[in-house]
Amino acid sequence: MNETTQENYERRLSKYAQLLHGTDQDGLVCKLQMYQSFLGKHSELGDRLWKIEPLLILLIKSLEQDLHLTLAKFFEEDGYSIGKFIRFCLTNRRQISWAEGKPLDESVLRKQADALVEHEHVIKAIRGRRDKFFAHRDKRYLDNGDQIYSDYPLSAQDVERVTNTLISIVGAHERGLSGGRFSFHLAEFIEIGVDNMVRNLEAGRKLNFPNQALD
């Protein structure tokens, strides 16, 4: 049986909610919160964090790479392409209904498209880092990997803002379709978990290496 436009829309929306809020290996919000929480711990403790557990610096770099690879998929045409989803909604809005038979709000869709344009420089940096460094190491960065951060500047706040835009877009469609409900994510629990993890690592370091100075 062929899928109707409404079914296509609902299937795509469900997939976006899963990709954003899921707790499996694809959940973007959990990855972002874990990365930010570790950055917050480094801001709080400085290089003392590496004394508590030297491997954490490698873990943070791995989280950064995974976060950028996951985020980039939302902005490429052969990936999840949130822009492509919005264009699909605009083209087919008369065949798609929200709760109680209400049509898609065209003004909402236009604002969502404009919001992505506002993040264009951030999206370019995310894709540049992915294409030139994380996924395939360009020869320009073979001897000086840190150059990628100058060529494609991107702050943790930039990544947070563009992720929040994704959450806002998907959430608006979820609320429209369900009549008010939207997905709940576990960001606060992730932050608590990272805090507990670092405290447990510090306790273990003091127990196993009592003569090591952590300050």
Rank of each mutant, 00 (worst) to 15 (best):
F134D: 10
V117P: 00
L59E: 13
G22P: 02
K15M: 06
D66H: 14
E64P: 14
L39D: 08
D131S: 14
S97P: 00
T70S: 15
E10W: 00
F75T: 04
Q6N: 01
L13F: 00
L28P: 07
L49C: 07
R11V: 00
S107D: 07
R93T: 01
K61T: 15
F38M: 11
V29P: 00
G83M: 07
M34W: 11
R94Q: 15
K41W: 01
L90S: 13
K124R: 12
L104A: 05
K15S: 07
L116R: 11
D131F: 11
I123A: 05
C89T: 01
Q95T: 07
L39G: 08
L71E: 06
R87H: 15
L59M: 13
D131H: 15
L32Y: 06
L71K: 04
E76Q: 15
F88V: 01
N8F: 10
L20R: 02
G40A: 04
I126L: 15
D114E: 07
R11Y: 01
V122E: 06
E10P: 02
G128R: 05
F88K: 02
S81Q: 10
Q25E: 15
N92T: 04
S97G: 11
G46M: 03
H68N: 09
F75R: 09
Q36D: 03
A125C: 05
M34V: 08
K31E: 10
A115C: 00
F74M: 13
H121R: 08
L63T: 02
A135Y: 10
L39Y: 06
L56E: 02
A115N: 03
P103R: 05
S107V: 02
L109D: 11
H121F: 03
D47F: 05
R129I: 09
R12S: 10
H121M: 09
L67H: 10
Q33F: 09
S14N: 11
S62C: 04
P103F: 14
F88S: 04
A115P: 00
Q6C: 02
A115K: 06
H119P: 02
K15R: 08
I123C: 11
L69K: 10
H21A: 13
F133C: 05
F134Q: 07
L90A: 12
H121I: 04
W50D: 08
S62E: 07
R48Q: 01
G79T: 03
N92S: 10
A72T: 03
E44V: 01
V117K: 07
G27N: 06
H119C: 07
Y80M: 01
D47K: 01
K111C: 09
S107L: 03
I86P: 03
F38V: 14
K15C: 02
E106R: 08
G79Y: 12
S62P: 05
R129A: 08
E76H: 06
K61N: 14
R11A: 04
L90E: 15
R93Q: 11
G27H: 06
D131W: 13
R94V: 12
E106C: 05
W98N: 04
L116N: 08
N92V: 07
R110K: 14
E120H: 09
F38I: 12
F133H: 12
A17D: 02
K84V: 00
L116F: 13
Q95C: 08
